[in-house]
Design a protein around this nucleic acid. Sequence first.
DNA 1: TATGAATGAGCCTTCATTCAT
DNA 2: CATGAATGAAGGCTCATTCAT
Lengths: 239, 239, 239, 239
Amino acid sequence: MSTSSEREPDGTEVPPLADVTHLKTLPTSARGQRTRAALVAAARRVFERDGYLDARLTDITADAKCSTGSFYTYFASKEEILQAVIETAQDDMLHPGAGRLSAEEASPEAIIRASNRAYFEAYKRNAKLMMILEQVAGVDPKFREVRRRRSQTFAHRNAKGIAALQERGLVDAGLDPVLTSLALSGMVSRMAYYTFCLGDEVPMDDLVDICTRLWVNALQMSPEARDDAWPSPRCGTPQ
Amino acid sequence: MSTSSEREPDGTEVPPLADVTHLKTLPTSARGQRTRAALVAAARRVFERDGYLDARLTDITADAKCSTGSFYTYFASKEEILQAVIETAQDDMLHPGAGRLSAEEASPEAIIRASNRAYFEAYKRNAKLMMILEQVAGVDPKFREVRRRRSQTFAHRNAKGIAALQERGLVDAGLDPVLTSLALSGMVSRMAYYTFCLGDEVPMDDLVDICTRLWVNALQMSPEARDDAWPSPRCGTPQ
Amino acid sequence: MSTSSEREPDGTEVPPLADVTHLKTLPTSARGQRTRAALVAAARRVFERDGYLDARLTDITADAKCSTGSFYTYFASKEEILQAVIETAQDDMLHPGAGRLSAEEASPEAIIRASNRAYFEAYKRNAKLMMILEQVAGVDPKFREVRRRRSQTFAHRNAKGIAALQERGLVDAGLDPVLTSLALSGMVSRMAYYTFCLGDEVPMDDLVDICTRLWVNALQMSPEARDDAWPSPRCGTPQ
Amino acid sequence: MSTSSEREPDGTEVPPLADVTHLKTLPTSARGQRTRAALVAAARRVFERDGYLDARLTDITADAKCSTGSFYTYFASKEEILQAVIETAQDDMLHPGAGRLSAEEASPEAIIRASNRAYFEAYKRNAKLMMILEQVAGVDPKFREVRRRRSQTFAHRNAKGIAALQERGLVDAGLDPVLTSLALSGMVSRMAYYTFCLGDEVPMDDLVDICTRLWVNALQMSPEARDDAWPSPRCGTPQ
DNA sequence: TATGAATGAGCCTTCATTCAT
DNA sequence: CATGAATGAAGGCTCATTCAT
């Protein structure tokens, strides 16, 4: 779990996606850890079933087979357990671990394509949780910030990639890398939301194809450049 | 107010953005219409100030200087008055009335640019209401549907424009016009949300520039085509 | 309609079954009378459909095709229109007009039987209204009084009949005529309530048979007396 | 408390008078049981004072010295606590425990008399609650059913007693035992309602006398039979 | 006389959080 | 550490009645 600040492969620090300063310390005993884990798992089930706002703490504790009092042994509030639930999905979202292509062996387009696919697949796996996050982000500024950090992590990564491609003269140098990354990453995340949260049922391959093509076009990547090996950071993973 | 189905300039019917079948009939007397209008205006103020979920009906009626009972003369619930509030903003969002360029006198790029600018400006004017809509869409499927219809109205418009440009050979013929429109329109609306709802403070001109450039690039519009006059439907207005 | 105090055949005064002192005077114009009658008819329909407590005045005025304001032209309150509705049924209940047997031509038992049958048939015709009356009597002392007067009218009638039979030596002289009448009349009205309000589905003939037999037995009417002509007031009509 | 199905002395099962399937489970801890009992006692007091419909939940919790929230720990609604209140009175009504005469030592008439007296005395003790039950039975079908079951319990008992007397040739064999029991039991319960709920102030002894006499007469019990020992089930307890 | 919009007091219910056992 | 009973503020909604037009 990404409970402490991490570093990207190039050494840039990745800000934690949520404020992980727990009021409650993690339990030391094995039994305590089991109870805490049961609560987090139960909370995810209940949140995904009922939504965050409609979820009752008693449903969570019932599902976790513990008393309401025990809840407060591990979490200070309903909010805090949601944060814990979200954290369990962050690794999966940030480092999907699939489709990682080394820059030496893959062209820029292939890397963008792989990143997009990895993103969409991770989003699909966590779609219900993403809906929860959208729900609370609409209500609670704290979770708007959580979502913003997640977006920025992706946008920074991609901005760096775009800038690198610009330096190598492979893409439109007139594009502001930060705004471009923000826009294109937002485009991909929006598509993911439409498809996996709202259920618009676009086939996975079509999603990957159209987004990759639009990225490549938007960056004005020259035909020859698309096949070039692309040295440094990953790019194309949207926010 | 767009209470009845309308038609686009080209004759296509625009679906109403919300189910305008009121349970409560619109008041006939002038006095009733005044009261109803006062309630809708008050509701908008209160929703924008406190958010939808935290808004209390009594705050609305107090602001509208009428009794709680009068509220229920015109609306069956908080939900229903929100729908009415949203309707009052729909015309402004769908037909900004600014920057309309006739196809005879403007190039495709100019039209896209004008549409994007008009969209961003309308979004800015209604930003708080858009946040409200995001908030309730996260909570209530009925309003997810309202938002979805709004998106689809824009996406359909733009898909038609893209298809027209493809027929004229001015843009990448390999792009699926519907998915492309969905993606690029989503990109623009996401940028609007970042900027005007989350307060990321990007200057209006930069927003218009980057989005227009990315549209043009993504569609692979040839340099000469950008200056072409572009006959039929507007394009570039994002969802 | 029994809007003024009446007299029994023997000259005894029958108390009005409801306080018929109208706050509102009866309308003089033909139009007014039509509207009032429409309201009373509508009220009966709505009360029978929804019950008194759940009936809304607006449903009544809507059914009567007049405005809410007009209601108060004719009635001072919801209570008052219920009284008016009940009055319309009183004649039917008190003077069923069927099965009246002259004492010269009928035996005591035949008269009791005819009275019981007339009562049950009148109750059946007005069963829903009787349920309404039970409902409001449970809630409002004013209507408990209405019901009590109705009971007493029957009980007085019957007490007189029992006393007459006792004088003629045809029935058990040791029975207090008032209490006996109260008990036996109550028995019959209870059976009517079970059957026609609660829906216990006892055939009409069985109802009449069992009640008549129990009356005759309870009074210890001698076999020969049963066939005797029975001079004066009707007897056996329960409360 | 009669929370589980019971058996009559002769082995017949007595149906529970109310659906005792609680949505809320009975509290296990002593503290919980104390609170629940306090609420039920408070509810009875408040209902008897204000009537069911006018009773406010806050009055009940105030009287029970607990918070409004605690009410919902034990009861799902006002309706449900009324059911609980009624149950506490059922034992007293069904098994008054007074005047039970063994069939070996008492005549049929003595048993009827004792049963009537026991019924009237139990009714008097619970008169206010009986009014509440009448009130809600007029409004809520669920409680009409509760009342119906109570009636049927008495009616079944008595029907059995009547049938036994018929078999022994002591009473009119031509009477349908079920309808006869229904009618005579209804007569007694009606008298109880008049006297103890409407306040008609008939002395207890007169009530017992007249009802017993009417029962005995109605059944055509022969003078010698009245003194007979009467073996099996109790009879005369009205509904 | 007819209309129908306006009134507003009143109460049931929820559920995150606390704390005595 | 575990338990689960106790807490209590807060607000949406109804509908009989009034009254200006």
